[in-house]
Design a protein around this nucleic acid. Structure first.
Length: 491
RNA sequence: GGCGGGUUGGCGGAGAGGUUACGCAGCGGAUUGCAAAUCCGUGAAGACCGGUUCGAUUCCGGUACCCGCCUCCA
């Protein structure tokens, strides 16, 4: 069996991955707070841990991996949006409006992440469905002396957990020395964090031994991981920005509430995303969502491929250049697929992936190296010629791509969908133009007068259509800037 | 201020103490009505200063610069 090696944030070393139970490998990843569309940075952990999920399924079997990713649907940003809608005249209670907002956001999230080729996790628990477990865990922490009630809040007593700071390599004393935050006066210690806080009438709340209130942010992951994966499980993932304080606090809560468990054995953190070399932020004006890209005709697999070029532990840069290169590769693979497979609709599962690709992924998710092997494989398929359809080499190539979550291999798919949505009957009109082009070209090749052909070609290109001519014929592919209106004159 | 990470050829971006990374772009050639695609070939690197070593881009130390987190932003 393939040995997977992963860089464990706890030890800062690459370690052999040994699951607690190979029959049920368990992974928890921090999911989104559902208050708005996912931005491009949100997509990184989704893609990174989707690759890991696929690898684990490949190695241990699809039925032997449990992947939990939560939805945080208790949050002040959600409350603020619901309150804004209510004040704007929306009907329903605040709870209704909050529910409406989170349901809407979750649907968006699913649509956007599906477009990126990410598999749905085994379970996607919502924080609001586990309030009871959070209350129980909070009560247990109080009973054990790890938490205390103060001023309507319940706070975790950081000093009661000696290991606090181990994951993120910080010492409590250093942090206090360098702290720049105002400390709530009712805290015993500046580092103590909230497990439960009171809710006002304008905020969602649940009954608890400490009055009507809502959970702090960190407790939800501890409670849901415990409920769905047990006191000890294999992998916990998330963005590097969550390492402190979120993951540190999760560990403290879980370790103290379940002293016999050891929570997550391997902690994985993905580095952050940048855009053209800069942090993505609203103030820099380079902030955009996954949906923004999709709406501009950038296919989900293009986005995915750009992400896979960079190791998950390195900062990743989204650039126009990277996007262009990714499109180029997908075009190549798409051509190979059409030339080397007997059936375009054939479904690949990744089961027959090249062992070298599996080995690259098993080496701490080296997607970049996996792609290198795929480039070489593609080159071999290219040279081998198209005579033999479904050759083992070609099948291995597409199985390998499928393992990386790349299976449609059509960078224009999204643009085409948009074109269709714009009302252009693509299926009818483009083939018509294609036949016309072919006819013109055939006669031009005899007469040696190519002016008509070139005129049509120029017009097509101006309308955002890619024109590919080969001995086999003419192919018209609408690109991202495809504008059907410009084609009307040509018919 | 505290903690962590990074610095590789024109650009992106890996692995390995000694042997071609790879991709994109470039250049030369083949093919092509033109173009695209494809094929063959090709140049180019390891921030700086020391140390360990027969040998370092790869290990150790220092310097400079960059970045992230410390603020319920993935």
């Amino acid at each position: 069996m393939t040995t997977i090696r992963l860089t464990n944030s706890t030890t800062r070393k690459k370690e052999d991955f040994v699951p607690i139970d190979p029959g049920n490998v368990r992974m928890y990843v921090c999911g989104p707070t559902v208050y708005d569309r996912a931005h491009l940075g949100n997509a990184r952990p989704v893609i990174v841990f989707d690759v890991l999920y696929r690898l684990l399924r490949h190695v241990y079997g699809p039925d032997h991996v449990t992947y939990v990713r939560n939805f945080t649907d208790v949050d002040d940003k959600i409350n603020a949006e619901a309150l804004r809608r209510q004040k704007a005249g929306a009907s329903g209670t605040l709870e209704d409006l909050i529910h409406e907002r989170t349901e809407e956001t979750i649907a968006w999230y699913h649509a956007d992440m599906d477009a990126l080729g990410a598999l749905r996790p085994s379970a996607e628990p919502r924080a609001t469905e586990y309030i009871g477990q959070m209350v129980a865990m909070t009560a247990a922490l109080i009973a054990r002396g790890n938490a205390y009630e103060a001023n309507g809040h319940v706070l975790f007593r950081v000093r009661s957990y000696a290991e606090y700071g181990r994951l993120s390599g910080r010492s409590v004393d250093d942090m206090i020395a360098g702290a720049r935050v105002e400390v709530a006066p009712f805290k015993e210690d500046p580092m103590d964090f909230v497990l439960w806080k009171p809710s006002s009438g304008e905020e969602p709340g649940w009954p608890s031994p400490w009055g009507r209130g809502r959970p702090g942010w960190h407790i939800e992951c501890s409670a849901m991981a415990q409920e769905l994966l047990g006191e000890s499980f294999d992998i916990h993932g998330g963005g590097l920005d969550l390492q402190f304080p979120h993951h540190e606090n999760e560990i403290a809560q879980s370790a103290c509430a379940h002293p016999h468990g050891d929570f997550a054995h391997y902690w994985l953190h993905n580095e952050m995303l940048q855009v053209e070399g800069k942090k993505m932020s609203k103030s820099l004006g380079n902030f955009f969502t996954v949906r923004d890209l999709l709406d501009r005709g950038v296919d989900g697999e293009v986005i995915r491929l750009v992400f896979l070029r960079t190791n998950y532990r390195r900062p990743m840069d989204w650039t126009e250049e990277a996007k262009r290169e990714a499109i180029g590769h997908l075009i190549t693979w798409n051509r190979l697929k059409r030339h080397h497979l007997s059936d375009d609709e054939r479904l690949f599962t990744g089961a027959g992936a090249d062992p070298a690709v599996v080995a690259a992924l098993a080496d701490d998710l080296n997607t970049h190296d996996a792609l290198k092997i795929i480039y070489e494989l593609a080159s071999k398929v290219e040279v081998s010629g198209a005579l033999e359809k479904d050759s083992s080499l070609a099948l291995r190539l597409f199985e390998s791509l499928a393992l990386l979550g790349l299976s449609r291999l059509d960078p224009h798919h999204q643009a085409r969908r948009i074109a269709i949505a714009k009302g252009f009957a693509l299926a009818v009109e483009l083939p018509k133009l294609q036949s016309k082009m072919e006819a013109l070209r055939t006669s031009a090749q005899e007469s040696k007068d190519f002016t008509a052909v070139d005129a049509l070609k120029t017009a097509l290109i101006a309308a955002g259509v890619e024109v590919r001519m080969s001995k086999a014929g003419v192919e018209l592919v609408p690109g991202p800037d495809f504008d059907p209106a410009k084609l009307e004159a040509l018919q």
